[in-house]
């Protein structure tokens, strides 16, 4: 058992890191606009494909690929907000309408991607070559980088939303839109900012994921379901709760795969989510309403 447990925990840590990056992007939009962006996974996919084109097809290197991938995701994210979310502000069914419009955006992006890039599998090169030892388990340096990078990005995000005025304006708009407007905060611009930042996180996650898994049109959609479990599990709200939930789900998923196999793991994760919500309706780390 010992020989398997440590590598499993490390792979859980890696999963948790990826979920944390995805879920923090989802929760950024949720806390600011009260909207769930179902196109988040497609933005990850777009980032990975653009990065592949720039880095491999044009041969400009992985660094340029990262910049282009994240940039493309930001542009697409801001456009989604502008065209598919903004027209419905103030509508009393805004949340339901945007479920449909962002799902539509996700489908359009995914189909568009498979039309442009075709069905052949692609893969991005790793950011770092070689292996490192983590708790005695060998891990590729690329995966170790993700494990280190995720908490760093989360900390930066926490600092941004807590310490800077522009970050605080995101929280203010999320908590009381009209009061924020009356303090001179440009609410529509804040919405764009939230979508742009969230899309940047999606692009970054997509590019990182593109060298662990094959880049396919479904690259982002599969982990998105688990990232949504994470956001709800954590209690739809604070960044800390989302990050905590990401690691709990990541480790749980890795252990479940070890104990039960791939087949049953998604079902058990959903059962765990339902149980948590039955006993703690505000999520694992959520505050009582």
């Amino acid at each position: 058992m010992d020989g398997v447990l440590i590598p499993t925990l490390v792979s859980g840590l890696l999963l948790g890191s990826l979920y944390a990056l995805m879920a923090s992007g989802l929760s950024l939009i949720w806390t600011t606009l009260g909207v769930f962006n179902f196109a988040h996974g497609a933005l990850m996919t777009l980032g990975a494909y653009i990065a592949w084109t720039v880095s491999e097809q044009l041969g400009l290197g992985l660094a340029a690929g990262f910049v282009a991938g994240i940039g493309a995701a930001v542009i697409a994210g801001v456009l989604i907000e502008l065209l598919l979310v903004r027209p419905f502000y103030g509508n009393r069914n805004m949340m339901l309408i945007t479920v449909m419009t962002t799902l539509a955006a996700s489908t359009i992006l995914e189909r568009g991607i498979s039309m442009i890039w075709g069905p052949r599998l692609k893969q991005l090169p790793r950011t770092l070559d070689g292996q490192v030892n983590l708790l005695g388990a060998p891990v590729s340096a690329h995966e170790a980088l993700i494990i280190v990078l995720a908490p760093a990005v989360l900390l930066a995000l926490w600092w941004y939303t807590g310490r800077t005025l522009s970050g605080r304006s995101l929280r203010a708009v999320g908590q009381n839109r009209s009061a924020a407007a009356l303090l001179g905060i440009d609410v529509p611009r804040t919405f764009s900012l939230a979508f742009g930042l969230s899309a940047a996180l999606a692009g970054l996650t997509g590019v990182l994921l593109g060298s662990i898994r094959f880049v396919t049109p479904g690259l982002g959609a599969d982990p998105l379901v688990n990232a949504m479990i994470v956001v709800i599990f954590g209690g739809l709200g604070s960044l800390g709760a989302t990050a905590g939930a990401a690691y709990v789900i990541g480790l749980l998923e890795a252990l479940l795969v070890l104990w039960l196999g791939l087949y049953w793991t998604p079902s058990v994760l959903f059962v765990a989510l339902i149980l948590v919500l039955v006993f703690r309706p505000n999520g694992l780390f959520g505050k009582a309403a």
Binding site: S166, R168, A179, L182, G184
Partner: peptide
């Protein structure tokens, strides 16, 4: 500038944080 009726402002924000944020607009 208007102070709204029955204002709850931003429940999760601290007093100082809120006052600083109020000076975020170009005028303040």
């Amino acid at each position: 500038v208007q102070a709204q009726q029955g204002n709850t402002l931003f429940g999760d924000m601290g007093v100082q944080e809120t006052l600083e944020l109020a000076a975020f607009n170009p005028r303040g």
